[in-house]
Simulated scan of single mutants.
Amino acid sequence: MLFEKNKVYRRSFIHDQYGGSRQRGISTPNKHKLIFIFDSGMDQEFGYKNGWSEEDGLFYYSGEGQEGNQTFSFGNKALLHHIENGEDVYLFESLGKGNYRFVDQLVLIGYDIQFGIDKHQNQREVIVFAFEPLHVVQEESHEYATTMRYKSIVELERIANRDPKRATGLSMSIRKRQVREQTAALYYYVLARANNHC
């Protein structure tokens, strides 16, 4: 991992090292497969709240865009497609005065569209992403190893390419399970394609 958990970094240092926007909440460096989320803690002003859920262990993060309906463009688009684009997502929490605590590396579990308000107090649609720490997904995907080990390469490919974040009407617990299945299937799919010499 590029950053040490709970260590405090100057935001300017992060951008000096990797690039990316120095102002946006979602920063996407051009020359690195990285996405930085800088959680400022100022989100309630626009009718939504970022943070961890004790109920399901997920980090909920509202997309960028302070005016009108949020869309899947710029940073929101990058977060939506970070897995297929091979981009790592790193979460930083603001401590004020340009200092940020590194929280964890995240993986997208899904998203929902909710109603909120924009900076003009008009009602609008807000994208709410649900993330989970990557290490948790990797650890818990081992539970599905037995199930995936004996599937055909066609079945493994289908599961590995499944995209649960776009499945509407599913609870986050189901999406979490599907992501774990997908992670385990991807491992055995790569192994099968290499004729078990991977």
Rank of each mutant, 00 (worst) to 15 (best):
T28D: 02
Q178H: 06
A78K: 12
V154A: 10
Y150M: 08
E181K: 05
E87P: 01
E139G: 00
H81S: 10
F59K: 02
F59G: 00
G110V: 02
R124D: 02
T168M: 12
I109W: 00
V8K: 05
T168Y: 04
H197G: 10
S21N: 15
R193A: 09
G65K: 08
F46H: 09
T183M: 00
H32E: 14
L91C: 09
G98H: 14
Q182N: 03
L80F: 12
Q66A: 15
E54V: 12
L80I: 07
S94R: 04
Y60W: 04
R180K: 02
S94C: 11
K77E: 14
G98L: 11
G47R: 04
G116I: 10
A194Q: 07
M172P: 03
A194S: 11
S21I: 14
G98Y: 14
I37F: 01
Q70A: 07
E143N: 08
K7V: 11
G65T: 08
S73H: 14
I37E: 07
Y60Q: 05
Y144W: 15
E155C: 07
K7H: 08
N30E: 12
L108F: 01
A184C: 03
I174T: 13
F131G: 00
G96L: 12
Q182S: 04
A192C: 12
I14E: 11
R24I: 06
S141L: 06
R149H: 13
A184I: 10
K5W: 01
Y188S: 06
S53T: 13
E84Y: 01
D118R: 06
L91W: 06
N122C: 04
N161L: 14
R166W: 12
L58W: 02
R177S: 10
I117T: 07
S21V: 14
S21W: 11
I35H: 01
M172V: 13
G25P: 13
G116N: 07
Q114F: 02
S141V: 04
F72C: 12
A160I: 08
M148V: 06
N76L: 09
F38P: 04
V154L: 09
Q182I: 11
I127M: 08
L108M: 01
E140G: 00
S73G: 03
N76V: 13
